[in-house]
Write a protein that binds this DNA or RNA. Structure first.
Lengths: 343, 343
DNA sequence: TTGAAAGCGCTAACAT
DNA sequence: ATGTTAGCGCTTTCAA
């Protein structure tokens, strides 16, 4: 591969001149410029990004760490991040941590060594050491969707999960449901902890008892165990829920699967409500009522915050720390319905 | 951030010594080694991967280009690629081309400039210029799942789509179906072209007529148009299929959605069969019979081929070009059933 | 066993 | 308007 020096020799000029036309920073004579560009074309010259980055201290690359690409809700964030990044001339490196702290740490180390300009992270439950270190080094980073406590001091873009869950339960309550079951994800994650709190608060406000027998905790998307748990729950002689609020659409789909398997009609026997609004939600049977998160927008905004940090760092300017909570929205579909008669 | 020189000064040795202990290539005195490692620890030294790569000409990074992460079947490949890569000490850069040639070209350029060691590509229909150029430069690369014609000379890992489609149709035929509809993806892709050919060949062998009225071409996963087309197809007075073979599970899910919407029972009225075996297939209602592709294994094998190329290039050794077609397998579930009576 | 120094390819300050 | 040169942080040959 041709390098700058090759091009310079080819046209009989110095490397700095060639560099100048390529970066068009300083002024160069139009005719010189033409000659150089022709040579660049001719030799098929491509700049070496490694050398350039080493010199200027920036890579124009950001890393996006996500827990699991299989999770459809994340793909929408990825799109938001990629689109926003591309628009700003940044390349996105996508990394799948598989919900594993070691893998996460490894990616963070490797990418920091490679000088990515910043990180957008959707992480594991606890604030890991690698993330803490990153933060302490002042490395640009933003947390997306999943977050730590508000005191972490890390820029965050997410939704108000407490309120979203509260509104979901309220919605089911107003439909006439009084036995509202809950399918919760890993409560080690603040996301689920907050949704749980919102659920409890709603029950309290509507004078509904908190019934542990219609609550499934630590459900894993798509797992056999989850299906089993749901079957157990709906086959209880007493305490069978008349509605189930699943804290992700994928969990809701498993719930529906379990209900079908046990001859329960949705929504006639039991209403089901999800969370996220993944594209699949409007395709399953029956279509799924859900609490929509503006995932694409979350991705975009995350990048904007990150860029703001990167710029601030580069210019020694100011960046205002913030936690942004975007609005959620109920999408009504077929899996929920008004309950007229009382059981 | 501390660099090699800092460490060297800290312990009063030369950078080369420090470098040596860090790479443990050459022999260094055990006591020296200990001192250096302590200093490294103390200063929190992290090597600069950019500088290192610039020097040695390798980045230990490979790029994985996929058309669309939303496509669930791809996530399994991603996993296969990542796992295999990690095992070999390589980092994977995941890029989403969004089925867009320009984005694909841009990623290829950016990553080549950044000296990734090789590419695993699941690409767009036509062989793009950027890929051709990559190939001509002798850049290590392998095509995965999607492929060009066998003459392209590029290593490929996929399945025998012709045969897989043939077997799927045969399966439906043996179940007693005689009006087997087809939902095909973009026929610009060899994958679908081959599946179409397999379908036709099977019809011919079983003396079934090729009926364009029960074939939907260029279906887009999850699109409204697809649902509409399926509705049209099954509401035809004559020519209503008694089975539908969808060339991806996602398409099959749309098909099921359309059938539900039109009051058709699955599999009582119409059997539905998919392709891929994404995790969701066993969760939808009814669960989906499908032609399974060994996606995880395809991902793993792709990396192995790529590494073989990278090694060959580094050592001027031999790499044997190959096209690997992994076996597919029918997974029987609830969406298909034996048709006893004739219509 | 360790050190000095060249050089990977580029940018930018300084010089002309 | 263009050339010279130092240096980003590392590896590696050559010398000692």
């Amino acid at each position: 591969m041709a390098n700058l020096k090759d091009v310079a020799e080819y046209v009989g000029m110095s490397v700095s001149t060639v560099s100048r036309v390529l970066n068009d920073k300083a002024y160069v004579d139009p005719s010189t410029r033409r000659i150089v560009l022709a040579a660049v074309e001719e030799l098929g010259y491509r700049p070496n990004a490694l050398a350039r980055s080493l010199k200027i201290g920036r890579t124009y690359t950001i890393a996006l760490l996500i827990p699991d690409i299989q999770n459809l809700y994340l793909t929408m964030i990825v799109r938001g991040v990629e689109d926003a990044a591309r628009q700003e001339g940044l390349t996105v490196i996508l990394c799948n941590t598989d919900e594993n702290t070691d893998i996460e740490a490894e990616y963070i180390n490797v990418l920091r060594d490679r000088w990515v300009d910043g990180f957008v992270i959707s992480s594991i439950s606890k604030k890991s050491d690698s993330i803490r270190r990153l933060k302490n080094e002042g490395y640009p980073m933003v947390l997306t969707v999943r977050y730590y406590d508000y005191l972490s001091g890390i820029d965050t873009v997410a939704v108000d999960n407490f309120n979203a869950a509260y509104q979901a339960v309220k919605y089911l309550y107003e439909l006439g449901h009084r036995q509202i079951g809950l399918v919760l994800g890993d409560i080690g994650l603040n996301v689920y902890k907050d949704r749980f709190a919102g659920y409890r608060e709603a029950l309290r406000d509507f004078d509904l008892p908190l019934n542990e027998r219609i609550i499934i905790k630590n459900a894993v998307d798509g797992s056999e165990a989850l299906i089993h748990d749901v079957e157990m729950m709906v086959n209880q002689p007493t305490d069978c829920p008349d509605a189930i609020f699943a804290t992700s659409d994928l969990k809701a789909i498993s719930v529906m699967h379990a209900l079908h398997k046990n001859g329960k009609q949705i929504p006639e026997d039991i209403s089901v409500m999800g969370f996220d609004d993944i594209p699949l939600s409007s395709l399953v049977h029956p279509t799924l009522t859900t609490m929509k998160q503006p995932l694409y927008e979350i991705g975009q905004l995350s990048v904007q915050k990150l860029i703001s940090q990167i710029e601030a760092k580069a210019t020694n300017g100011q960046h205002i720390h913030s936690i942004e909570l975007l609005p959620t929205e109920i999408i009504s579909r077929q899996s929920t319905r008004r309950r007229s008669e009382r059981l």
